[in-house]
Amino acid sequence: MSLLEKAFGKGSILLNQTAADWQQAVRLAGRGLEASGCTTTQYADAMIATILELGPYSVIAPGLAMPHARPDESVLHTGMSLVTLAKPVDFGSTNDPVRVVFALAARDHDKHLELLSEFAGKASDPDFVNSLLSCPTEAQIRTLIH
């Protein structure tokens, strides 16, 4: 199993979700991190606060956001969650509209680097977002990120 696949614990993948705006989308992704035991509820607030303060620089590719906040006590384990959106939302980024949200939680500044390297390998493929959206089940998503 790849580090990337392992980063998505039980309950961390939420498909075809409805969010009214980007804050709700980030909150859903925060719920995925919480469900899989990576973070407490507060981490979603920290991700939203980071975007409100510094802008949507976590929207790193067309249609793809990777919200995150700094490592603090709300992070219990390094991991990721995924939300695919039934209807895209705008973050105010040049990469809008966003259709998939990968939240990232890291315990410190080092241990997730290999994980991010694997993620970068997938996310740099221009077809990645469409491939994710065409997966109707979590099992298919897991095959894609394997």
Binding site: T50, H68, R70
Partner: peptide
């Protein structure tokens, strides 16, 4: 550089 130093900046 990014705000948290763990995500966007690492990519």
């Amino acid at each position: 550089v990014c705000g948290a130093g763990i995500g966007t900046s690492v990519l």
